[in-house]
Amino acid sequence: MSAPTTPGSAVADLLGLVALGELLAFERMAGDARLAPDLRRRAALGEMAAAEIANYHRLADRLATLGVPPEEAMRPYVEALQAYHDSTEPRDWAEAVTKAYVGDAITDDFLREIAGALGEPDRQLVLDVLHESRYAEFAAAEIRLAIEADPRVAHRLSMWARRLVGEALSQAGRVAAADRGALTALIAEGERVDVQALFRRLTAAHTERMAAAGLNN
């Protein structure tokens, strides 16, 4: 039987972090859709944004059920996550889909690993709100099309992807500093999560994704 979740616990902290990520992803994708070169692509990114806000509502509802106001659970992470998005504003459609492909995927990989340390129903909730593979496939296909149209784009997008990962890791440190301790303990608890092995798996998965989209790691 899973241990009960209490306000201020690691579970509430993690759900607050994920909820804020979904909310900001919605805002970002809705804005980036205006960079799309045609209405089909604009609609596709709009659909992805709609999925993000639906996921946010699921997480907010769960937090409310636990007796934790969603805004309270999200508040410690606002500065770090907003800083990431503010420092990685895409300049064009190719950069927008690369951000969705690289940034969302590495976040999903991380959450998938950490979800294993949760009890139900929170484990399944976190897994349920991860991005659908069809969205990653759409973004990767758009990156490959951009490279086919102009091979020189590959270098620029590879550099952009490295910047995205660097910014993500930098802000992850700020998230850890902002956390009250419970979330950090959940991530670092040796019996549940091997942190060094976790980062090796994240790095390997990122390298594979870059190659699949025609980018250099």
Rank of each mutant, 00 (worst) to 15 (best):
A49Q: 05
A50P: 00
K99N: 08
L59I: 04
A73F: 15
D104N: 09
G67W: 00
E95D: 00
Q82C: 14
E72K: 11
L66M: 08
Q82Y: 04
E72N: 08
G103I: 06
H57V: 11
D104R: 11
P76S: 14
G67E: 01
I53C: 05
P90G: 11
E72L: 11
A94M: 02
A73H: 07
I106E: 00
E71K: 12
D61G: 12
H57Q: 12
A54W: 07
E52S: 13
A83C: 00
H57T: 12
A73V: 04
A94N: 02
G103F: 11
V68Y: 06
N55L: 00
I106Y: 03
V97R: 07
V68K: 06
S87N: 09
V97P: 06
A96G: 04
T98P: 05
S87M: 05
T98Y: 04
S87C: 06
A50K: 05
A49C: 05
E95Y: 07
E72V: 14
A94L: 00
E95I: 10
Y56K: 03
H57C: 10
A80M: 09
E79L: 10
T88P: 02
P70R: 10
A50W: 07
A50E: 01
E95Q: 15
V97N: 01
G67C: 02
Y77E: 02
T98F: 12
A94E: 00
L66R: 12
A80T: 10
T65P: 04
A100F: 11
A80C: 10
D86M: 09
V102R: 09
A73T: 03
E95T: 13
D61S: 14
V102C: 13
R75Y: 10
P70H: 08
V78A: 15
D104E: 10
A49L: 06
T88H: 02
H57F: 11
L63W: 02
D86E: 08
L63Q: 04
E95L: 09
R62G: 09
Y84D: 02
Q82H: 13
Y56E: 00
D86W: 07
Y56M: 01
R58T: 06
T65Y: 00
R91Q: 05
W93I: 03
A54D: 02
G67F: 02
S87K: 09
M74I: 01
A51G: 03
Y101K: 08
L81K: 14
R58Y: 00
A94Q: 03
E95W: 10
T98M: 04
A50G: 06
V102F: 12
A49I: 01
W93A: 07
Y101C: 09
L81P: 03
T65F: 05
G103A: 15
E79R: 15
A83G: 15
W93G: 06
A49T: 10
E47T: 13
A73L: 08
M48T: 14
R91I: 01
D86H: 15
E79S: 12
M48G: 15
N55W: 02
L63K: 10
P69G: 09
D86K: 11
